[in-house]
Simulated assay, not measured.
Amino acid sequence: MKCVEKYIFKKRNIYLISKHDINALKHIEIKPNVTITYYNLNDDHLESVLSHIYENKKLVTKYIKRNERDWKLIIAYYNNNPAGAFWIFEPNEKFFYDSIEINPNQILFCSVYVNSNYRGHGIQNQMREKALEYWMNNCIDKEVISVVERSNIASNKNIQRCGIKIKGYNYLIKLLGKNIVSIYKTNDKTNIWFLFNIKKA
């Protein structure tokens, strides 16, 4: 199955939130030894902080290039140590990110990661609570999208604990491991995107 998902076909869960879903969301309490904060992308220590969180250094090199116009970064500290990162993508024009089209009426929660040394403390959902706070205070009329691999059981359980529900699926058709077609299906719409010469974030 892993070979099929890597090289041929993959199905992912789409979680959507609108302002009509607010009453269904479950509040997540921030634990005393966890601190959640927004991080300035122009800070000189950004690379160092992300390197403490992400074990994949290629991702760090990629993420430090993100700009404050389209991106917001939330950092979790566990006993004052960088432990997790949670990104909000809020574009001013249509972009593709991770084979999904995101338009100015939407925001995407993505690149969520908790360092393996700090898992089991509910840090991912505590960061999501902060991200939802940003959405409610700044852009509540926009739709929130989260895309989660179906095989990522832990992440699916975590997001569902917040009262967020699967409202669609993303099907990726691959050629030699590269995504070439993305099918986005919810109850309201179906989009088919051919992933050639697209504007990526």
Rank of each mutant, 00 (worst) to 15 (best):
G84T: 07
I107N: 04
S151K: 12
I36Y: 02
E101T: 12
K157E: 06
Y169D: 10
N179I: 10
I64E: 05
K31N: 08
M136A: 14
V34I: 15
I192G: 01
K31I: 00
F9C: 05
P91M: 06
G120W: 13
D44N: 10
L176D: 11
G163N: 06
V4Y: 03
T186P: 05
L25A: 09
Q124K: 05
D98R: 12
E93P: 07
K65R: 15
I64N: 03
F109G: 01
I159G: 04
S182E: 04
L108Y: 06
K11N: 12
D98A: 06
H27L: 12
N191K: 11
K65V: 14
I100L: 10
P82Y: 02
R12F: 05
Y7V: 03
D70M: 11
M127A: 11
C110V: 09
D43N: 09
N56R: 11
I173D: 01
V114W: 00
E93W: 10
H27S: 14
G120P: 06
E5I: 11
W87R: 02
V147I: 15
G168V: 07
E129C: 01
I123L: 10
N137V: 07
M1W: 03
Y169T: 14
I88A: 03
G122I: 07
L172D: 12
C162Q: 05
K174L: 11
S99N: 15
V34F: 02
F95K: 11
H27P: 03
G120E: 04
L16F: 08
L41H: 05
S155G: 03
K189I: 13
N197D: 14
I153Q: 12
I180D: 01
M127D: 01
N80E: 12
Y63N: 07
G168K: 07
K19F: 12
Y77E: 02
E149T: 14
I74H: 01
K94C: 11
V49W: 00
I159R: 04
T190G: 04
I192P: 04
K72S: 05
T190I: 13
G168D: 08
K178F: 11
K200W: 06
E93T: 15
G177E: 04
L176R: 10
Y118W: 09
V34Y: 00
K58S: 14
F194M: 08
E129L: 00
K72W: 12
N117G: 03
L176P: 08
V148G: 00
F95I: 15
G168M: 04
T37D: 06
L50S: 01
Y54G: 00
Q106Y: 11
I164Q: 03
F86Q: 10
Q106T: 14
V181T: 09
E93R: 15
A24F: 05
N156I: 12
F196V: 11
K142T: 12
E101K: 15
I36V: 13
Y113H: 13
I159Q: 06
S182K: 06
R150W: 05
N33H: 10
N191M: 08
P82D: 02
K72V: 13
Q106R: 10
K178P: 05
N105V: 08
E55D: 15
S146E: 09
C162S: 13
I173Y: 11
N125I: 11
I100H: 12
K31F: 01
